[in-house]
Design a protein around this nucleic acid. Structure first.
Lengths: 299, 299
DNA sequence: GTTCCTTTTGCTCGAACTGAGCATTACTTA
DNA sequence: TAAGTAATGCTCAGTTCGAGCAAAAGGAAC
C-alpha cells in the first residue's frame, strides 16, 4: 500500500555508575537516542526488534526492557518531504556503563538539570525556571496551578512528574527544542538540547522509572550481583533525585525482604565495613508489589 | 516507500453504569474494540486521531483519553498476505453508557470473569482456572511461582496484575484465543472471546486503570457531576473488583479532600438519605498524588 | 404515631507504618 | 592510642490503616 509512514524503535538505555544516572546516546552534536526502523518482516515482536536495534547501534547488552510510549505527532520530526515518523520508545536498564564505539553515556541530569534535588533545590530552578514560569503564568490561574503542582511551588515536589515538568518548560519556551525553526537561539541555560523530541522521551523515561521503582524491584536491574546497602541507596537516590534517610531506607529493604546478606564485606572505604547483599529474586513471588516506597512526597 | 505496515488506533472505552464496568465494542460475533487506521496526513497527533476514530465508529463522546500500549507482534493478526498491523491502544473513560448505532456495551468482567472478586473469589477461579493452572505448572517451579503471584494462591490477590493473569492463561491454553488455528475448540468456560488480541488489550487497560486509580483521581471521569459517596465507592469497587470498608472509604476521600458536599441530598433509596458530593477539581493542584489508595493488597 | 428496617454518617481503638534522631560498632588514619 | 568515618542498631512520637460499634435519618408496616 505504501502509506508515507516510518516506524522506528527508540531506546532510553539507562545505567547508574557511582550514583550518577546516565543515558546512552549515539551522536554528539545534539545527542540522540539509539533509534532504528522496525523490520516489519524480520522482527517477530516489537521488543525483539528493539533489542536488535540496540545491539546493532550500541553493542551494549541490556537486561530489562519495557515499552514506554509511542510518539507520533505529525510534526515531531521536521524533514521536508520525508515520511511521518512514529517512534515506539523503550526503557532499558543495564548493569554496566561500558561504552561502545560511536556511543557515549551522558548524565541524565545534564539534560534535565531541574530534576536532581539531591544537593537541595538546584539553582537553575530557583534562579531561572521558577521566576520565568511565574512570569509566563502571570494572570492565568490555570497556568499558575500547573506551575505550582509540577514545580512544587508552595506544594510538594513530586519526582514522578518529570514529563509534566518538561512539557511545561516546552510550552513556555524555556527549553531550546521549543525555539527551533524560529531563529530565536536564546542560549537557554536549561540543560543540553537533544535531537528531535528525544529529550521529551528522556523525561518520559525518568518519570516512568521513578514510578516503577515504588512498586517493582527494578533498581536491582541496575546493580551488580552484590552490593552494599549504601550503594543500593545511592542508586535509588540517583534515580529519584532525592536524598533518603539512611536508617529508614535500611529498615525498608529489610522489612520487605528485598535483599539478603552474603556474610561477606565490601572493601572498606573509611568507616565500618559494609556487608554485601544480594537481591532476593524470590520476593516477586511472595509480596504483591515489592518496591522502594518513594519518600517525602510532602516536601 | 511502502513498507507493508498498517498502523491502527484501538480504543478501550470504559463506562461504569450502576456498579457494572462496561467496554464499548463494535461487532458481536467475536466482539471487537473500535479501531481504525491512523491518517498519517490528517491526524495531527495520535490522540486526536484516536478521538476521530472513536467519533467515527461509535459517536460516543469521550472525556479522558490516555495512551495504553502499542501492540505489534508480527502474527498478532492473521490475515494471509495482509500487512503487518501495529495497533496503538488507548484507554478512554466516559460518563454515560449511551449506546450508539452498531456499537454495544459489554460487561468488562464477561471477558475477564476471574477479575471480579466483589462477591468473593469467583467460582471460575477456584473450580477451573487454579486447578488447571496447577496442573500446567506441575514440576516447574518457575511456573508455580508465577501462578502463585498472579492468582494469589497462598499469596495476596493483586488487582493490578490483570495483564499478567491474562498472559498466563493464554500461555497455558486456558483462553479461547490461544487455541485459534489449532481446530481445538474446547469450549473453554473462561469468559467471552474477542477478536484478534483485543482481550489482551482489555486486560492491559483494566490493570492500567486499576493502577491509575491509586494515584490520580480518574474515577471522577466516570461519575456524573454529583454523586453520593456510596455511588463513588460502588464505581471504585467495580473497577478494582473488590469490596471496600465503607467507613474507611469515606474517611479516605474526606481526608484527601477529593470531594466536597453540596448540601443537597439524593432521592432516598430505603435508608438515611445520602448527601450529594462533587469532585473538587482543585485537588490536582494541591496534593501530589491524589488517588484512592487501593486496599487489601494482603488478601 | 410507633416500631422496625435500611442506609448514611460519626467515632474509637489497637496495630502497623513513618519520619527523625541518638547510640553503638568496626574499621582506617594520624 | 586517639580521632575520624561510615555502618548498623534502636527508640519514640506522630500518622495512617483495618475493623468494628453506635447514632442519625429516612421509609414502610402496623
Amino acid at each position: 500500500m505504501g502509506s508515507d509512514l516510518l516506524v522506528t524503535l527508540d531506546a532510553v538505555i539507562v545505567a547508574v555508575t557511582d550514583t550518577r544516572p546516565r543515558v546512552l546516546t549515539v551522536a554528539d552534536v545534539p545527542p540522540a537516542l539509539p533509534s532504528g526502523p522496525l523490520d516489519a518482516e524480520g522482527d517477530e515482536t516489537l521488543e525483539l526488534g528493539m533489542r536488535r536495534v540496540i545491539d546493532e547501534q550500541t553493542g551494549v547488552e541490556v537486561g530489562y526492557v519495557e515499552q514506554l510510549y509511542t510518539f507520533g505527532d505529525r510534526d515531531r520530526i521536521r524533514a521536508p518531504g520525508g515520511p511521518r515518523v512514529l517512534s515506539i520508545a523503550y526503557l532499558a536498564l543495564v548493569r554496566e556503563a561500558s561504552t561502545a564505539a560511536g556511543a557515549g553515556w551522558v548524565d541524565w541530569y545534564a539534560m534535565l538539570p531541574w530534576e536532581d534535588h539531591r544537593e537541595g533545590i538546584p539553582g537553575i530552578l530557583t534562579d531561572v525556571v521558577v521566576p520565568r514560569l511565574t512570569d509566563w503564568a502571570a494572570g492565568d490561574p490555570g497556568r499558575q496551578a500547573r506551575v505550582a503542582v509540577c514545580f512544587g511551588v508552595g506544594a510538594p515536589w513530586d519526582p514522578i512528574r518529570a514529563l509534566e515538568r518538561y512539557e511545561l518548560l516546552y510550552e513556555s519556551d524555556l527549553v531550546a527544542e521549543a525555539l527551533r525553526g524560529r531563529g530565536d537561539d536564546a542560549g537557554l541555560p536549561t540543560g543540553v538540547e537533544m535531537a528531535f523530541d528525544h529529550r521529551r522521551i528522556c523525561a518520559t523515561a525518568l518519570g516512568r522509572l521513578r514510578g516503577k521503582l515504588t512498586y517493582r524491584p527494578v533498581v536491582f536491574e541496575l546493580m551488580p550481583d552484590e552490593f552494599t546497602l549504601s550503594e543500593l541507596q545511592g542508586t535509588v537516590e540517583a534515580l529519584i533525585g532525592l536524598r533518603l534517610h539512611k536508617q529508614n531506607f535500611r529498615r525498608l529493604v529489610e522489612r520487605e525482604h528485598l535483599v539478603e546478606g552474603t556474610g561477606r564485606y565490601a572493601p572498606s572505604t573509611g568507616g565500618r565495613p559494609a556487608e554485601l547483599y544480594r537481591f532476593r529474586r524470590s520476593v516477586v513471588g511472595e509480596r504483591p508489589r515489592p518496591g522502594m516506597r518513594l519518600p517525602p512526597f510532602r516536601g
